[in-house]
Simulated assay, not measured.
Amino acid sequence: MQEKIQLNHFSLISRLFGNLFYRQPTDNILSGVFTWLQQQQLSEVWPLTEDAESQQALDALQMPIDLTLLEKEYQKLLGEKGAVATQISAYDISVADFENFRQERNLPPSDNLDHFAMLLLTASWLEDNADSLSAQQDLFEQFLLPCAAKFLNKVEQSAGLPFYRALAYLTREILSAMADELESVDL
């Protein structure tokens, strides 16, 4: 039962983090997310053991923040002319292969598959809707981990505010834990 709870939390966290990378902080879709974070709700569902560094990252992600200031940081970092490329193609990931992967597994179509956040959102969808460990393992091995290693490092190095550094750090932590779990499962 504990394993299933952790997997459900992985889906929620992947969806949350995917949307935080994909959407500007002032996007209406995120209106309740920052309130939820400031209520320390992420700490309530965070499935990993917290060391000092991960606790700092959780605190940074959940602290009250001026969304106008965060919007400027988002544009500087992840916007159209931001310091960090959000396109998976910039990290040597084939968008056509990713699209084929999604089509083979009957994922709903998306307008912008050439975005790192779509990898996290795909991981969440597979967790919730596909009864296939091999699909999750393939996503991690072929797309998510190779792209995340490069993308998250650039976000951490380029972020001026703690929010996006913490988001990158925690994303790396949850992906590493899930990858270890997927690797340990016998098919």
Rank of each mutant, 00 (worst) to 15 (best):
Q55E: 13
D111P: 01
F17T: 01
F21H: 00
L12F: 11
G32T: 10
S89R: 07
S184Y: 11
L126G: 08
Y74L: 03
N100R: 15
R165V: 04
Q2G: 10
A85F: 07
Q40F: 07
E80S: 08
S134V: 12
L58D: 01
A130P: 00
L145H: 08
S176I: 06
E173Q: 15
Y74P: 03
L20T: 05
I29Y: 15
A168Y: 07
A60K: 02
E44P: 01
Q157H: 10
M118N: 04
D92T: 07
M1V: 14
L170N: 02
I65L: 12
V95R: 02
E183A: 15
S176D: 02
M63S: 14
R165S: 10
D114I: 05
R23T: 02
A168N: 08
L107W: 01
Q142R: 14
F34R: 07
P64Q: 14
L113R: 09
Q62H: 03
Q136E: 12
L139P: 00
A168I: 04
E127Q: 13
E156P: 03
L182Q: 00
L20R: 00
S124A: 15
F10W: 14
L70T: 04
E104Y: 01
Q137F: 12
Q136H: 13
E141V: 12
Y169H: 11
A148P: 05
E50I: 01
M63W: 06
L144W: 10
Q2T: 12
F163V: 00
L30D: 11
D97S: 15
S176G: 13
P25N: 05
S184N: 13
I29S: 15
D114V: 11
L161N: 03
Q137Y: 11
V185A: 14
Q40N: 14
A90Q: 09
A90H: 04
